[in-house]
Design a protein around this nucleic acid. Sequence first.
DNA 1: CTCCATAATGATAATGAATCTCATCTAATT
DNA 2: AATTAGATGAGATTCATTATCATTATGGAG
Lengths: 146, 146
Amino acid sequence: MNSARIDLRAIIKQEGLRYTTQREAVWRELQSSDNHRDAESIYFTLRGRSINISRATVYRTIEILVKYNLVRKLDLGDGRSRFECKLGSGHHDHLICTKCGRIDEFVNDDVEELQKSIAAENNYVLSNHIHQLFGLCENCQNEEDK
Amino acid sequence: MNSARIDLRAIIKQEGLRYTTQREAVWRELQSSDNHRDAESIYFTLRGRSINISRATVYRTIEILVKYNLVRKLDLGDGRSRFECKLGSGHHDHLICTKCGRIDEFVNDDVEELQKSIAAENNYVLSNHIHQLFGLCENCQNEEDK
DNA sequence: CTCCATAATGATAATGAATCTCATCTAATT
DNA sequence: AATTAGATGAGATTCATTATCATTATGGAG
Ligand SMILES: [Zn+2]
Ligand SMILES: [Zn+2]
Ligand SMILES: [Zn+2]
Ligand SMILES: [Zn+2]
């Protein structure tokens, strides 16, 4: 339910930080809407709801959410960071349509295992990875036929 | 040997473009030095060799090299693009040390096959992918023990 | 070799995402 | 209500990259 909201307040408090309307708004927005949002989009959505917030605060709040592992930061290669709420979904990677920008998610345990062995072979201790597949989604393939 | 240089001249000419000293210099620099160079590094190296070139021309030349598939553009997540000459090495992906910035390369055909099946399952026609593993390299792990 | 059209270059301004500054505001406790 | 330190907003700043445009130089024609 809204355990998520409670989570943020608890974390915020525990760290001696303050639970502000701006922080709550960004967190709710990231939870309730589609994932893979960029900062500008969050900023405009909240402004459109008459919530008083600045770009700087959007960025600062997201930074906190990422720090406390509630939000994942994505670099999809288009110059702006995207963010997705980590509640309610496990680790996944992304398929991105180069034509329409559609983003799909995939989970593949075999690849995850191979990543571990690649790291081991190269004497790396892994912390994270980026795995993104770019191409044409089904819709955009069909439009190519015209 | 220098078939590469000939390649560029041929491509340049074929497109009705002009083979300038700046374009040759950038291409030679990318061929002769370590891979994973950023534009600024190429700019300064060439200036250091008394080659007259501007940042804009470095970027413009790299754009051409990427367009004609001689150079691959990498986004390693640190805010600046890296470039690597595609001659003399097949497709590979990267391991990146988050502490010292070291970059290693890996080739894994099993992963490449899995990428194809993931794309097929999701009805995507793949064009390319980004696969980067981040962690601590061997040296940096040892320094952690201090 | 010289001329010429035009592609290419360089200096600089502009862009855009993200961060920083700092005066002002406000959450949270007393 | 007063207090205080953390949080905010407006605007400046940074940094990589791109755009502008006057000047330069390539490469083909003659
Ligand atoms: Zn599409
Ligand atoms: Zn996702
Ligand atoms: Zn290292
Ligand atoms: Zn490489």
